[in-house]
């Protein structure tokens, strides 16, 4: 089973790769070769439901934002 992409986005101008997002929620985020964080397109169904507000607050660059809900 797969779930939809989580409703967050990472501001590419702000992310410098502290790694808080993919360390705290590896089911939702991943690191690229530079260590920059990215949102996974699909997430494992058995990934722990994340506390998105906490993850957003944990980003030192304030680079993670909720995407507008449709």
């Amino acid at each position: 089973m797969r779930q939809q992409r989580p409703p967050v986005e990472i501001d590419r101008d702000l992310c410098v790769g502290h790694g808080r997002c993919y360390n705290k929620a590896p089911g939702l985020f991943y690191a690229d070769d530079m260590g920059l964080g990215h949102v996974k397109d699909v997430i494992d169904d058995n990934a722990t439901p994340p506390d998105l507000a906490r993850i957003i607050r944990a980003c030192p660059e304030s680079a993670i934002h909720l995407t507008a809900t449709s």
């Binding site: 607050r57 944990a58 030192p60």
Partner: peptide
């Protein structure tokens, strides 16, 4: 603690 980000690894381009 609530995970307010510390600055121990600095911020921005010199992270």
């Amino acid at each position: 603690r609530d995970p307010h980000p510390h600055l121990t690894f600095s911020l921005g381009t010199h992270r």
